[in-house]
Amino acid sequence: MARTDSWENLVKGVINGDVRLMARLITVVENRQPGWQEAMKRLYPESGSATVIGITGSPGAGKSSLTASIALKLAEKNLKVGIIAVDPSSPFSGGAILGDRLRMQKLFTCEQIFIRSMATRGMLGGLCHAARDSARILDVFGKEIIIIETVGVGQDEVDIVKTADQVMVVCVPGQGDSVQAIKAGIMEIADLFVVNKADKPGADEVVADIQSMLELSVEADQSIPSVIKTSVVNNQGIDELVEQLLQARQKGFLSREKESLRIRAEMKTLLEEEIFRTVSRVWQDNEILEQLVMEIRERKNDPYSAVQAMMQVYKSDKN
């Protein structure tokens, strides 16, 4: 495959609105191929005008179907939409089945909509390393609203809150009692709750559980997140949902504090990634890792000392 475009060319493609080159740049950035950081550095100053909406919730809650319905409504309103849909990588083979497009078939040939499926590639917070970067690329490309759909999450995968301007948590009937609603983690990060599959029995109870949780948790001066009932099959509640999202977009929702927090989180993630990559490169290149594994297997060494010794190298560098 002729994958020889330089990052400069790809960046130019993004700015000129070339879909093919933009899709390629996402690949380069996702693979952390040479030039990815240069490309992102160039794009960063141009970014910041799109609104990023995060959609998260348990597997099978209807995130992809909702994403499709929302995107279609936004496109009808003449907005340009980018979708990043994340699905899990296999912990064994590293491969993945990316199936979110199954629910989005109607959108494939809609010119205003761009969809990219991504695998988590070992990342645990419900996103992948390149989700934020890809959103930025789509932003510079000219997408006005970017929807990031996380993997199906449990209770604690909340990285989306560090990336999206607005987080929508999707719940469905039949997933536990009201105590689930007051647990820490995912229920805390929502700017907006959606109770999907509202055509199924029990939806009203879920709405009530969430609302009573919100009454307990929200401080007097904070605004209370809305809870919206939807049913994608019956096209129920979608208009209201899109209206809410657009209203919030108009108001603008990022306080300076929140933005600073987010920049800090991004730097921390990038730094961790960079350190990990540097160290593991040294380990692999010099076959140090294999050597250590053998020593540890034979109980001549232990993992704690091995890691500490590795970090010592960097610390003494500095002194």
Binding site: S89, S90, F92, S93, G94, G95, A96, I97, L98, G99, R101, L102, Q105, F108, S117, A119
Partner: peptide, 14 residues
């Protein structure tokens, strides 16, 4: 499914 198990990222569109 088979390609997934051999380390490929497979996009399935139905």
């Amino acid at each position: 499914y088979g390609l997934r198990d051999l380390g490929f990222e497979v996009i399935y569109t139905g």
